[in-house]
Amino acid sequence: MVKVDFKLIDKILERYDYDKGNIIAIMQAIQEEYRYLPQAALEYVAEKIGVSMAKIFGVATFYENFSMDAKGKYVIKVCRGTACHVRKSANVLEAVYEATGLSEGKPSTEDGLFTVEIVSCLGACGLAPVVVVNDEVHSKMTPEKAQALISELKAKEGMR
């Protein structure tokens, strides 16, 4: 659990005029800061802009990009769009899961290092299959390349 800096949330709210209509943008800004939506932050926002917790939770969970749980340091997005699918991205995903020890039901590692997400299409179909680590795109992936990529990240973190 992170500690929420309410001064920072105030700044975000100010930037969006405390306007209910900007709730999605406000949550995007919060997520950019914490990489997920901490409950304390949303409760604060709900109070300040005058919407109910049910509404804010409803909006947050509707959209795929909002995470209600803390994410790992490396967010690995595996594209499962059509083009990537046709070029066997399922195998890449499997390799990523295997290398990180994660699964669809368990998206983040306990050590807070990795989160694996499945995304629909990243718009880089010409380079399929694509894997994105944080904001870095890795194109024309194979299971082997995926495994190597994760080993590299682990090595960088001093893991064996």
């Binding site: 209910k20 209509g21 999605i24 943008a25 949550m27 509707f62 959209y63 909002f66 629909s120």
Partner: peptide, 21 residues
């Protein structure tokens, strides 16, 4: 307005709802 990951928002009235928060 930046979407937040919902394919259905490409539908006109869903997009309207999304823009309105």
């Amino acid at each position: 307005n930046q979407g937040a990951g919902a394919f259905v928002c490409g539908e006109g009235s869903a997009m309207t709802n999304s823009i309105e928060g």
